[in-house]
Nucleic acid binder design. Structure first.
Lengths: 295, 295
DNA sequence: AAACGCAGTTGCCTTATCAGCAACAAGTAT
DNA sequence: ATACTTGTTGCTGATAAGGCAACTGCGTTT
């Protein structure tokens, strides 16, 4: 079948991952047949893959309905990531403080490929509030936090975003014109905060500021989100200031938290070493690649 | 190699999962070679598996040290589980309230195979406190929450636990005698709460109570943990009462939260149907199986 | 009731994929 | 400089995976 020369394929694993990737917050349960249809694989293949993943509890299956769901094993793995990522731990308290001061929901996102991944949220106590869930993905060009990554992250990210799906239009306000987006990004670089005025969801706006490591690289973005119709210009300005402040504090806390001399550190960690030749990279198949933010 | 007749194997996926399973909170980074040694696989195999998983960001690799870590893709999956599991969402506020009243750390655990998995924690504000991290696994027979599952969950769980590793002894207080353990379980069933007096960690004790669904099945356990030496009998009794109360409230909240009529529910869900023949089950290879709590 | 349809699992056989080896590439220690 | 590391990659025989079709449970239809 003349598979394009891809040195390390491990196609079976790839298929298993395609199965896992089908699960999202919106669609968190599938019948075997559904998966097969959606992924264009044969029933028997999906059935056997699911069985394999089930053995490790990465997936689970409702004994009654036979619907397949994400399992506790996936949660275990994810929690390892969350623990290691100081960011999540470090940033959460600042989100809480931010919400307490502003009254609007706040969240933190990480870059995941060429989308932003929500990794922590604190909800506003108000009845009218914007809700965001941990694990949700958001586009880069139509959200405040996304723009932070586009403006301050790897330039390749912007190129990939434009190329990929083009700049999809979600609302009337979405900035779908590359030139206008670039103009916004320049401004963001200057001011240090990014705005979104109903460009992703009608009626919902946001401000975002970067969490930076000691080298000045963006590691995450903190955002406040609010209903556009009840927040006037003055309040928005204040909200921007507060968000920026929270992000700055979080940056300091993050820098301070990185690799604390490791109390009971046992395993030797060799001195830094540049990655070797590395061949053709090509991360995440069929979704094309986006260079990760350099460190 | 006459692999024992296991109808659906998907051995490559299994190997990939063995790689993932190597990662824990204690060991969250590996060199490729380390993994190969530990899993008794060849360097080249691990290298290619890691490359495959990296493409989906389930794993990631430090560009400098080349150490392999759990990636953001795993976090994404895990968060889907966490969201779907109302338990985590529902229970957390009650943990907070419990800590506020008692001053001791509290956490919630789910059953993961034949261990308990910590899924939510709230720490005590005191300087002297017991700390537990989300994602940690704890044995069933030497922890309060574990005993809840043994006492109120599927009876097969107890058998599997005894068979598996025997009742490993962690401290002088560990109940390693099956008969004594069963006696404790009987009492737990009667009283509705379980105690641990330094049986897992010397000096640390805990009380746990079950979160039950509408059918009376254990879906989770809530525990308060405390330093044994500063908590006298009177305080322990109060702590037990509070923990039980929190668990009861959480149970009600959980029952109320299950499947809210599904507002925009689109996909048809067929009527319940018992799982078919199902062949030889055998969950989680090489760790033997433990029947899941029946529903 | 009996027949049909649908979803999921499983045995069999062919073919494609993977494990192992060894060479190589990069970096580190002697 | 030279000898060890550790990780990646081309190559080829051995193995594991895919497709098919049969079969099992169930629910629905005539």
């Amino acid at each position: 079948m003349a598979q394009e020369t891809d040195g390390s394929a491990r196609k079976t694993v790839d298929k298993a991952m395609r199965v896992l990737n089908a699960f999202t917050h919106e669609r968190s349960e599938f019948a075997i047949g559904e998966l097969a249809r959606e992924l264009d694989m044969h029933k028997s293949v999906v059935s056997r893959l699911v069985a394999a993943l089930r053995r490790w509890r990465i997936l689970e299956q409702d004994p009654d309905t036979r619907l397949v769901r994400v399992g506790v094993g996936a949660f275990r793995l994810g929690s390892i990531f969350a623990t290691r990522q100081n960011i999540v731990r470090v940033v959460t308290p600042y989100l809480g403080a931010l919400v307490a001061r502003t009254g609007h929901s706040a969240h933190a996102v990480l870059l995941d490929g060429n989308r932003a991944l929500v990794v922590a949220t604190v909800e506003s106590p108000h009845a009218l509030r914007v809700i965001m869930r941990v694990g949700e993905h958001r586009p880069l060009h139509s959200t405040a936090s996304g723009k932070i990554f586009l403006a301050l992250g790897d330039p390749a990210l912007l190129l990939a975003t434009e190329r990929e799906r083009g700049l999809a239009r979600f609302t009337a306000g979405t900035v779908a014109d590359p030139a206008r987006l670039r103009a916004q990004l320049t401004r963001i670089r200057r001011e240090g905060i990014a705005w979104n005025e109903g460009e992703n969801n009608p009626g919902a706006g946001g401000v975002s500021a970067p969490v930076l490591d000691e080298g000045g690289n963006v590691v995450a973005a903190i955002s406040s989100v609010f209903p556009l119709n009840v927040v006037d210009a003055a309040e928005r300005a204040a909200l921007g200031k507060e968000t920026l402040l929270a992000a700055k504090r979080a940056s300091q806390a993050f820098a301070a938290s990185v690799e604390p001399p490791a109390p009971g550190a046992a395993r030797a960690r060799r001195a830094p070493r540049r990655a070797p030749a590395a061949g053709k990279e090509r991360e995440t198949p069929r979704l094309s690649s986006a260079g990760r933010a350099r460190r």
